[in-house]
């Protein structure tokens, strides 16, 4: 079986040399891949490339569609690509205000993707939104409230509901827990972990937090200066790091 996602030779360089150089990765259904590294390592660039929000200088991104055919996203027509991104893919952003419509109620945020694919029955859309809000532990009573009044943790959970309502198979996450209080982080990680396992999602999660990588991911890529310098089984890379930089990274945290 071909992998769900296969990126090869992804390159995007910015003036000054930063960016992402010849990164290749594969992901199967149900697999969680963590991309770690310090800021400037190229991990966020990699995620933007995978999300096709950034045009690559070189490389290809093959994705296996629901009908089994494999397509290079970089040559897919824009309409098809955008439809894919908002149905079969999700993107949880670090800054919830970038991932949500702040002027729209929580329920509307969740319902948007359904309406985007043609749902035109208000009652059904609302029911689906209510269901998903409950699954991410947002009280139905808050359904018509604006996310502006939500805490950081709630906003992230709302982003998750908004993305998962169309039952995507691949979800990209960019530092989804950073900036949150520790207890809020734990709750969110726990929720993500449960949903990923329950729904069999494939996930690429970018994080600088090795504990997050350990808790959520099966495999890990360590990036430095735009390149992948080490990869493998998450616990193996974190407990027996081989590359000098990975050893430094692991030894720099108290307990990962």
């Amino acid at each position: 079986m071909t992998p769900l996602l296969s990126a090869r030779g992804l390159t995007k360089l910015y003036p000054g040399g930063r960016g992402c150089r010849e990164v290749s990765l594969e992901l199967d259904a149900g697999e969680v891949l963590a991309v770690v590294g310090e800021s400037g390592s190229g991990k966020s660039t990699l995620l933007s490339l995978l999300a096709t929000e950034l045009a690559a200088d070189a490389g290809r991104i093959d994705y296996r569609l629901r009908d089994g055919t494999v397509r290079d996203l970089l040559v897919l027509g824009e309409a098809e690509r955008r439809l894919l991104l908002r149905t079969d893919w999700g993107f949880i952003r670090q800054d919830a205000t970038q991932g949500l419509r702040m002027a729209v109620s929580a329920g509307g945020n969740v319902g948007e993707r359904l309406m985007a694919v043609g749902a035109r029955h208000y009652g059904n859309i609302r029911e689906a939104a209510r269901d998903w809000l409950e699954r991410v532990e947002i009280a139905p009573a808050r359904m018509d409230d604006s996310p502006r009044g939500f805490s950081g943790g709630m906003r992230q959970r709302l982003q998750i509901a908004r993305n998962l309502v169309t039952q995507p198979r691949l979800v990209l996450m960019d530092e989804p827990t950073s900036g949150l209080d520790v207890s809020v982080q734990a709750r969110l990680l726990d929720l993500i972990r449960g949903l990923v396992a329950e729904l069999g999602l494939a996930v690429v999660i970018v994080t600088h937090d090795l504990a997050v990588a350990r808790l959520l991911s099966h495999r890990i890529l360590v990036m430095k200066d735009g390149r992948v310098i080490e990869s493998g089984l998450t616990d193996q890379v974190l407990d027996d790091p081989a590359a000098p930089y990975t050893q430094l990274l692991v030894s720099s945290v108290l307990a990962a």
């Binding site: 089984l233 616990d235 193996q236 407990d239 027996d240 081989a242």
Partner: peptide, 9 residues
């Protein structure tokens, strides 16, 4: 033991 488990290379 960890090597058998794949935790150590």
């Amino acid at each position: 033991l960890r090597m058998i488990h794949g935790n150590y290379r």
